[in-house]
C-alpha cells in the first residue's frame, strides 16, 4: 500500500536488572502511518514471537495517554518527537520512510531497568506515600459544596493534578530530577483549601523522600516542561520551593 514505511529500529535490549544491555537492530517493514508507535512495536514483536525469539518488552496499558505506564526515549526524546503526547498516542505519521529510530528506556538511577525498555518507577509511589494525600478517612466529611473554591484556583489545581506520573520529566532532565512530578502534587494540595492543614508537613515529607530516592536537583533547564506529555508547568517547581522553605521557616 502506498504511504507505507520501511524503518530501522535500534532497540535497547537487556535481559534483567543485573545483566548488561546493548542495542539490537531490527527492521520494521510495511508500517502504516496510521499505526501508533506501540502498534508498530507490536508488529515487530509478532514477528519475533513467530521466530520463537523473546519479544521486546515495554510498559504500556491504556494506550489512551492517561495511565502513565508507557515510556520510551525515542531518538533521544522521552515520549518521542511530538509535544504534549505520550508514546502510546504518538503515530507513525510523525516519521518518514527509511528513518532509523533509536529506542531506549528511561535512564535514571532512581528508575532501574527491569527488562529491555521496562523500568522500575516505584520510587514515584514512595514519594506519594510520604505525603501526597489529604488525611481524611472515609465518611464524616462536609458537604461537597460547603467550601466554595474559586474557579481560577480549582482550574489551576486541576492543571497540576493532571500529571500522569510517567516519569518523562526525570528522563528528560540531565540531573534526573523529579521536581516537576513532586511539585505537581504539592501544588495541587497547596492551592486547594482541603490541602491547607498539612500543607507544609506534606511539602517537607515529599521533598525529603524525593532526595532519598536518589533523584537529582533542579538547575532550571526546563527540559521537564518541554517533554511533559501533560504540559505540567515549571511554575509548580517554584511553588514547591516556596512551600518547602516555608516549612523549614515554620519549624525553626
Amino acid at each position: 500500500m502506498s504511504g507505507h514505511m520501511n524503518l530501522t529500529l535500534k532497540v535497547w535490549r537487556q535481559k534483567n536488572s543485573t545483566t548488561p544491555g546493548k542495542f539490537v537492530t531490527y527492521k520494521a517493514d510495511e508500517i502504516s502511518p496510521d499505526m501508533s508507535f506501540l502498534e508498530m512495536l507490536d508488529v515487530v514483536n509478532e514477528d519475533l514471537v513467530k521466530k520463537k525469539e523473546d519479544p521486546i518488552h515495554f510498559d504500556h496499558d491504556c494506550r489512551e495517554g492517561i495511565c502513565g505506564m508507557c515510556s520510551l526515549v525515542i531518538n533521544g526524546e522521552p515520549h518521542g518527537p511530538k509535544r504534549a503526547t505520550t508514546t502510546c498516542q504518538l503515530h507513525m505519521r510523525s516519521f518518514s520512510d527509511k528513518d532509523t529510530i533509536v529506542i531506549e528506556p528511561w535512564r535514571a538511577t532512581a528508575f532501574p531497568v527491569v527488562k529491555d525498555l521496562v523500568t522500575n518507577r516505584s520510587s514515584f509511589d514512595r514519594i506519594q506515600q510520604a505525603g501526597g494525600y489529604v488525611s481524611v478517612g472515609t465518611g464524616g466529611v462536609p458537604d461537597a459544596n460547603e467550601i466554595p473554591i474559586s474557579k481560577v484556583i480549582a482550574d489551576e489545581a486541576m492543571s497540576s493534578a493532571t500529571c500522569i506520573g510517567c516519569g518523562a520529566c526525570v528522563a528528560a532532565c540531565k540531573n534526573a530530577s523529579a521536581m516537576l512530578f513532586v511539585s505537581a502534587k504539592i501544588s495541587q494540595f497547596a492551592l486547594l483549601p482541603q490541602g491547607q492543614p498539612e500543607r507544609y508537613a506534606r511539602a517537607e515529607a515529599m521533598v525529603l523522600q524525593m532526595d532519598e530516592e536518589g533523584f537529582g536537583g533542579c538547575t532550571n533547564t526546563y527540559a521537564c516542561e518541554a517533554q511533559c506529555p501533560k504540559e505540567i508547568k515549571v511554575t509548580n517547581i517554584a511553588r514547591m520551593n516556596r512551600e518547602f522553605f516555608n516549612a523549614e521557616l515554620i519549624k525553626s
Binding site: 461537597a144 467550601i147 490541602g195
Partner: peptide
C-alpha cells in the same frame, strides 16, 4: 462526591 472533594479532587466548578 463529598468524600472526593474532601480528598482534594479538583472537580469542575
Amino acid at each position: 462526591i463529598d468524600q472526593c472533594v474532601a480528598q482534594g479532587v479538583p472537580f469542575a466548578r
